[in-house]
Amino acid sequence: MIQKIITSREMILATAIVILVCCIAYVFPGFIAPANLADAFNDTSPLIILALGQMIVILTRCIDLSVAANLALTGMIVAMINTQFPTLPVPILIVIAILAGTVMGAINGLLTWKLDIPPIVVTLGTMTIYRGLIFLLSEGQWINAHEMSDSFKAFPRHEILHLPVLSWIAIGVTLLFIVMVSRTPLGRSFYAVGGNPGAAVYAGIDVGRTQFMAFTLCGALAGLTGYLWVARYAVAYVDIAGGFELDVVAACVIGGISIAGGIGTVIGTVLGAIFLGVIKNALPVVGISPFAQLAISGAAIIIAVAFNAKSSRQKGRLILKPQELKG
């Protein structure tokens, strides 16, 4: 029964996406051509990967505002390595990207865990630091397509079964997360820590360590996305993906991840990212101005939060009454 309620929330979002796509198709039938839908999915893939990382951070009552800066710094690092050592194979670069991202995520996690600094402050700080480091590394220079090796640029675009590798990676990460979140003790502890940190402590779960793990995984995904982003767009500079962290948080919120922690699903997050992706990809095609797009994504966020707030308010009522009995 509960399962049904949860799925119904995602069903509502899925239905909204279908309606949105239908409306767009009515104005611009070409949008629903399979090749175009695949393109739109591919464009949304980085958002999906980052949103999944962000999801587990938010589940533990934290937030990571540094994901986009992490992505940009990692992208710059691998792009610079590639220009220096063009023969270094791409898999090694990917490993380097994931490692760099992991370290940056772990720094966020350590500061939150060991120094007990609020995550929003920690990641606001590291966001600026990571962006600043890109400038120091690159001295403000761009790395352009012609400086990158062909294999470096080709990897995310390489097509398997008519779908680019970038899309396959998003699908793979989604599947991994479904297993990790619902079938491993770590996944369960994300929900426990966010749902009730007090109860988690008494159950023998280390709250700080769990939050650290969430930040680290989130950083690893940001690092991976950093390489994919720079390779796909074939350019690296200080401001790539500027402000993208807000899209990532928005995707989570639209997908039903509670900002208060402890509530949310992988499928919801992916649908939230796709919803934003459809708006960003389709509305320009239909001729809606970029300002209206912003307004539409903003409205979607507020509707989603209002919806979540309403459902969680009903749930709190039962606990409070016994509290009043204190004589």
């Binding site: 929900y191 426990a192 749902g195 009730n196 007090g198 109860a199 709190g316 409070l320």
Partner: peptide, 10 residues
């Protein structure tokens, strides 16, 4: 119970 016992939405 509320703070330390159960995880309510679970």
């Amino acid at each position: 119970r509320g703070k330390q016992g159960t995880i309510q939405n679970t």
